[in-house]
Design a protein around this nucleic acid. Structure first.
Lengths: 175, 175
DNA sequence: GTAGATGTAAAATGATCGTTTTACACTTGG
DNA sequence: CCAAGTGTAAAACGATCATTTTACATCTAC
């Protein structure tokens, strides 16, 4: 019944399915069952709506990634892909569609990526016992990003393979 | 002086910089210095122009990837990123912006990804001596895709790390 | 020398863009 | 009871969308 929550949920699925620029405000109002006046009162503008959608998505995403091992991290991504589908990273898609020129959007995207790196760094540190291994962290970040992107055309296989590669690399660093 | 070639080159850079949907036909005609009539005579339609842009980009991309080792593959990607910048995979961006619903675009994108997998499979087979190692191929594909995506916010570091990870994994399979 | 191809500029097509506004109905708290 | 808040529907905003058309200039080849 919460208008803003349903607006954001509807917007997320439409943006994800058809793209940000290609999804007009009329499709959003129609989808959420509200007037354009109400939409603008709650969302402010299209850019702000996109930023809100991404912020909410990040919360939901991070809730699924509360893990303490690399293997569990990629298992969590596997679950995410199974439940939410794989249409590539919505953050990078938003960044790309706006050319990085919409500050409210760019900020949310880059902040999200920074948080992801931190999270992965924590997991790697916990697992290897080493406080800092930037090269290994970078590799796991790349595998995570690659699994998300490749899943578009390879499906879950990509995530499984990425998880195996990640555990192999982390294992090697534990010796 | 070739009108179609310059049109495609200009379109590629505008699409890459600002996104496909956000780039209108007037910016393309203005950018290429031609009339809209001439644009449509050469390109057919916007979807067809996008498909042409991607086809030309693939040719240029593959020409840079004529290598015979995993290490060289990622070095080539490093060069590509340095020369052409890193705004994420333009093929997946096109696929995402059109929701995969524009057949001419979807076809070029998926065909390109299929060719990339084949190329990587060939390199891996050549390097390991094994005819077929689908899991390892999948891992290198994910690393390649991940390097491209992560380079948006990590720059060349991501590509370097991906290359190191790839050679490590391939080496392991050679023993 | 004229027909055909290839280009231009510019206007018109009807649809759709994001956003604001006008006018009206319903609830809720003082 | 009425003022404030929150919602609706619908129209209007000027801009821009992809595409087509009309009218005209320039080259090239037979």
């Amino acid at each position: 019944m919460n208008i803003k929550a349903t607006l954001i949920a509807v917007s997320e699925s439409l943006f994800d399915r058809h793209g940000f620029t290609a999804t007009g405000m009329d499709k959003l109002t129609r989808g959420a069952g509200i007037s354009s006046r109400t939409l603008y009162k709650h969302a402010g503008s299209k850019s702000a709506l996109i930023a809100s959608v991404l912020s909410e998505r990040e919360k939901r995403f991070l809730r699924r990634l509360e893990v303490t091992s690399t293997a569990a991290l990629f298992k969590a991504l596997e679950d995410w892909v199974r439940v939410e589908g794989c249409r590539n990273c919505l953050f990078l898609r938003a960044y790309g569609e706006t050319g990085g020129d919409t500050p409210e959007v760019a900020e949310v995207v880059l902040a999200h990526k920074a948080r992801m790196i931190e999270k992965i760094a924590d997991i790697v540190a916990l697992e290897t016992g080493r406080a800092d291994d930037p090269q290994l962290v970078e590799q796991i970040v790349v595998l995570f990003e690659g699994a998300t992107a490749a899943a578009v055309y390879r499906g879950e296989r990509a995530v499984v393979a990425a998880g195996k590669a990640a555990t192999t690399l982390v294992q090697r660093a534990c010796v």
